[in-house]
């Protein structure tokens, strides 16, 4: 009977989860009917783009590597696509995949030599690589106009927000689906195995270097895609969107949401991007608000925001227990 119960509950869960996601997508698709403000549509579009970036960042971390160059790879995708479409006149529909591929190829090129490094060393060296790679923009100043900001990038879908909203809603859903499958098939299992013990993993025949490179390749491809589509949505690029601080923000979104689960970076990105917009009238005090969220999460929620429901539940249980004890006595 136990087994039956378990199987039933598993089947139930199998149905609930997709139902919740489908519901969420339906709500999100109806949103533009309610929200007419282009400003808020813009915020949502940015959230969609950054969700791809943070979730792809987390994919790399599941293999035990902590990349601190992720925004730079977003920049590689963005600038590749923007410059090629602007200078050669190619359609963005072609240059966007090109940008994603460029990010992936450069990711693979550095992943091999860096696959020797572990943990914090990898983090530092990749951080530095991120800073270094951005300097390429200044070398090709002629095309990138790095200091002034690259303008005149062709639009992907014209100048109104609504088409972009649906485009990015679809794109983000597809990317999340793709990355979800990646994590929860045997490839993702192998990555997690490597992260837990690279010695045991290689003793059972998992090629550590190869899988680490695969993780970086996939992560960089998706963040490159996010960057490239961003370029043709925003049509203006500034290198500050991809510098070290930008990378740290991506990391932050992911950690605050919770690195331990797939939903973590999604929630973290959404919360940390929406809250400052909600309190826009605070103006220059807004960073204090963000800092406050960061500190509350880091001190009180070791699992990140995704751990919040569990935290609340255990708190309620503890309270009830205490009540029961006082009643009894």
């Amino acid at each position: 009977m136990d087994v039956m119960d378990k199987q039933l509950s598993i089947r139930n869960r199998n149905l609930t989860k997709p139902a919740v996601y489908a519901g969420l997508i339906v709500i999100l698709s109806l949103l533009p009917l309610l929200i007419k403000s282009p400003y808020w549509l813009h915020v949502f579009i940015l959230i969609f783009i950054y969700i791809i970036a943070t979730v792809s960042l987390r994919v790399i971390t599941t293999s035990g590597q902590f990349p601190l160059a992720h925004a730079a790879f977003m920049g590689i995708g963005a600038y590749t696509s923007a410059v090629v479409s602007k200078e050669l006149g190619w359609t963005p529909w072609l240059t966007i995949p090109l940008g994603a591929l460029a990010a992936m190829v450069i990711g693979i090129l550095i992943a091999y030599p860096f696959a020797r490094l572990r943990a914090i060393y990898y983090a530092v060296v990749s951080l530095f690589f991120g800073i270094g790679v951005l300097q390429i923009l200044f070398v090709f100043e002629k095309w990138t106009n790095a200091y002034g900001g690259l303008i005149g990038i062709p639009y992907l879908l014209g100048a109104t927000k609504v088409p972009y909203y649906y485009f990015f809603l679809g794109l983000t859903s597809l990317c999340l689906l793709a990355l979800y499958r990646f994590e929860f098939c045997r490839i993702g299992t192998n990555l997690k195995a490597i992260a837990q013990s690279y010695m045991v993993a290689s003793s059972v025949g998992i090629n550590e270097a190869r899988y680490r490179v695969i993780a970086v390749a996939v992560g960089c491809f998706f963040v490159g895609l996010a960057g490239a589509t961003y370029a043709h949505y925003n049509v203006v690029l500034s290198y500050t969107s991809f510098d070290m601080l930008a990378t740290l923000w991506l990391v932050l979104y992911a950690i605050v949401g919770g690195m331990g689960s797939f939903a973590g970076p999604i929630i973290g990105t959404a919360v940390l991007m929406v809250v400052p917009e909600l309190f826009r009238e605070l103006k220059e005090f807004v960073p204090f608000l963000s800092a406050g969220i960061l500190l509350v999460v880091v001190f009180l929620m070791p699992q990140g925001l995704v751990g919040l429901p569990q935290l609340v539940r255990s708190w309620i249980v503890r309270r009830r227990e205490r009540k029961a004890i006082t009643h009894a006595s």
């Binding site: 950690i255 960073p287 204090f288 800092a291 999460v297 070791p302």
Partner: peptide
């Protein structure tokens, strides 16, 4: 704990830089 130290550090950066900016 590498992750959480990063978050704390950025919190500190935000507070210091914003204060100075103000």
């Amino acid at each position: 704990n590498f992750d959480r130290t990063i978050v704390v550090c950025i919190g500190v950066i935000l507070i210091l830089e914003t204060t100075v900016n103000l």
